[in-house]
């Protein structure tokens, strides 16, 4: 069981709040004596997961779970889901609409970045929504 967990709500298209969960996570992690690299990678994973919910879903939650030896980030949303996960994992592949790309988001790096910065990653997606689980080991 997680020693600590906290859940954050993420609203669809709420770009004003973009990065807030990851800022919160940074504040939590700096109170633990973790290696700087663990903090950095966890924040990146959290940020990208948060942005994915904002850009692609109808809204969802990010749950942070901290264990003795790892951090688990669970991003769960309701939404259209990911049609082709393998394709979505490719760098630069994006299904973000034009208006979001114009804002500088949706460059197709979200899932690849989560993968690159975590030690374990799992995606389950259906047409009702998506669950991304990523873990960073201490």
């Amino acid at each position: 069981m997680a020693l600590y967990s906290k859940e954050f709500e993420v609203k669809a298209r709420d770009f004003d709040s973009a990065g807030e969960v990851s800022s919160n996570l940074r504040a939590i992690l700096k109170q633990l004596s973790l290696a700087p690299d663990i903090v950095r990678r966890s924040c990146i994973v959290c940020y990208e997961a948060e942005m994915n919910i904002i850009i692609h879903s109808y809204g969802g939650t990010i749950k942070i779970e901290i264990f003795e030896d790892r951090i688990r980030i669970i991003a769960e949303d309701t939404g259209p889901g990911i049609e082709d996960i393998e394709l979505a994992m490719k760098e630069g592949y994006s299904t973000a609409p034009e208006e979001i790309r114009e804002m500088g988001f949706g460059a197709g790096m979200g899932l690849p970045n989560i993968k690159a910065n975590s030690d374990f990653m799992d995606i389950k997606s259906s047409k009702d929504g998506t669950v991304v689980v990523a873990e960073i080991l201490f």
Binding site: L3, Y4, K6, K30, Q31, L32, S33, L34
Partner: peptide, 23 residues
């Protein structure tokens, strides 16, 4: 060196216990 002045406790389980209490 990194500065750990924000750290709650050097033992992670104890720090997390405190974090729960803070929340």
């Amino acid at each position: 060196e990194k500065s750990e002045v924000m750290k709650l406790d050097k033992d992670i389980s104890k720090a997390l216990e405190m974090m729960k209490e803070i929340d």
